[in-house]
Design a protein around this nucleic acid. Structure first.
Length: 433
RNA sequence: UCCCCGAUAGCUCAGCGGUAGAGCAACCGGCUGUUAACCGGUGGGUCGCAGGUUCGAAUCCUGCUCGGGGAGCCA
């Protein structure tokens, strides 16, 4: 009975005046002869404990002299409000017990380079900023799942090992499956399409693997994606759902992880305004906008990252770009009946230049059209037999989208790089730790 | 794959043709309200690797390795 009796630093204001024990680690220490200021972290927050000579046993006061950064300790004392303390509360220590004296800790409170920090990612996640970002990540995930479940979506897990490419565009990780080739999942969407015909509204949440040699602040080799899929849903339904869904996630982070966002020095006003509806821009209008900005761009091409930044910087909210040219999008997207050269799809671009965080579309529900598209894309029909079956047995218009977790967290936290938005990033040239 | 930039103490960096430096960390000492605390002292180096130019190379040149930023691809 160690864990269940503990008091969490996150809850200390509820224990004002009480004597409690905090189980944690020494984050930093400042000493001044007869007084030690111990900054303790316990995973839920940070707190200063003040140890004064004469107020704790002499041997324990001496112990404080020798405590090293990240040593694990139990600190007992009375909680009291003090306006000099960072969180408004601190502890007058009456006892300090050492669990383990830490060896010289590699990560100091000063600056470090990215390479060094990534080599020590297993320790770096203790750092207040990294810790805060990962707590926001946790909130994004739980808010997303809460919203979906309370809106009638059923969680269906899609397989990670798959027999064929999903979209047929990006490079996949290949592995051996008892003598046959298998690939790590690039999207759960196709399986979601089957599931939504069984359950109506579904979603999957899981890792996604892209073997592209991407080397930018927006790319991870392994990242997490939440993908809802809805039967009897048009692309218009799809976008309304996305507005509600994403706004809920942002507002929940503001409500439940405000302190972490403040730690990350996020401008909260940029998040407070994220409420439905979001602005919409057709692909045609976006091209026009780029021309007005003096950019060279030809209708029919896909937007590059700088183009997306130019478009999104025009708005305070995420912006939908709708109706992309058919030839730059995936084979399964439903063509616009009035303009077959474009498809019923949208990308959602986050503000402040964070780029695409959602890709979405209405899917082709007609058997002959889908089969024709697959032939055009040279996709092996035998591997997709089950997918075509969905268009044979009660096919209906259906739509869905995929939200990239780490890019969303990077935007919400105002962070530079997605590699710090996942506990253990997989990057090109990096699979340790 | 392509284009830029970088590699010097455990960490972050300065030094850019003439004896290898600073701050932090570590260790020793001081300080009863510190906020990346402060003050004094001590130890700490195959200047990424290989070759070349030079009387002399951390410094200039070439190649390689590793890393960072960006493009493409995408969430």
């Amino acid at each position: 009975m160690w864990l269940l009796q503990s008091v969490r630093i996150a809850d200390i204001r509820e224990h004002d005046g009480e004597e409690v024990t905090i189980k944690g680690w020494l984050y930093n220490k400042r000493s001044s002869g007869g007084i030690h200021f111990l900054i303790i972290r316990d995973g839920t927050g940070f707190m200063q404990a003040v140890a004064v000579r004469g107020e704790i046993p002499d041997d324990q006061f001496e112990l404080c002299n020798n405590l090293t950064q990240e040593s694990s300790i139990l600190v007992t004392g009375r909680i009291r409000a003090d306006k000099r303390a960072a969180g408004g509360f601190e502890m007058s220590a009456t006892g300090v017990e050492l669990v383990q004296l830490a060896e010289e800790y590699p990560i100091t409170l000063k600056e470090h380079g990215v390479d060094f920090l990534l080599d020590h990612r297993h320790l770096w996640i203790r750092n207040p900023r990294q810790h805060a970002a990962l707590l926001v990540r946790d909130e994004v995930i739980s808010a997303a799942e809460d919203w979906l479940r309370s809106n009638g979506f059923v969680k269906i897990d899609a397989p990670i090992l798959t027999p064929a490419a999903c979209e047929g565009t990006t490079t996949l990780f290949e592995t051996d499956y008892f003598g046959e080739k298998a690939y790590l999942s690039q999207s759960g969407q196709l399986y979601n399409e089957a599931a939504c015909m069984a359950f109506g509204k579904v979603y999957c949440y899981g890792p996604t693997f892209r073997a592209e040699k991407s080397k930018t602040r927006r790319h991870l080799i392994e990242f997490w994606m939440i993908e809802p899929e809805m039967a009897y849903a048009t692309q218009e339904d799809n976008m309304v759902i996305q507005e509600e869904f994403l706004s809920y996630i942002v507002q929940r982070c503001l409500a439940k992880r405000r302190q972490e966002l403040i730690t990350l020095e996020r401008d909260l006003s940029k998040l407070e305004c994220i409420v439905p509806p979001f602005p919409r821009l057709s692909y045609d209008e976006a091209v026009e906008l780029l021309h007005e900005e003096g950019k060279e761009f030809e209708w029919g091409d896909d937007f590059g990252a700088p183009d997306e930044a130019t478009i999104s910087m025009k708005y305070d909210k995420p912006v939908f770009v709708t109706g992309y040219p058919t030839k730059v999008k995936a084979f399964y997207m439903q063509p616009d009946p009035d303009r077959p050269e474009i498809v019923k799809c949208s990308d959602l671009l986050a503000p402040e230049g964070y780029g695409e965080i959602i890709g979405s579309s209405e899917r082709i529900h007609d058997l002959d059209l889908l089969a024709a598209r697959m032939r055009e894309h040279n996709l092996p029909e035998e591997a997709y037999g089950w997918y075509l079956d969905l268009r044979r047995y009660g096919s209906v218009p259906h739509s869905g989208f995929g939200l990239g977790i780490e890019r969303t967290v990077a935007w919400i936290t105002g962070s530079e790089h997605v590699r710090e938005m996942i506990p253990f990033p997989r990057l090109i040239n990096r699979i340790y730790p």
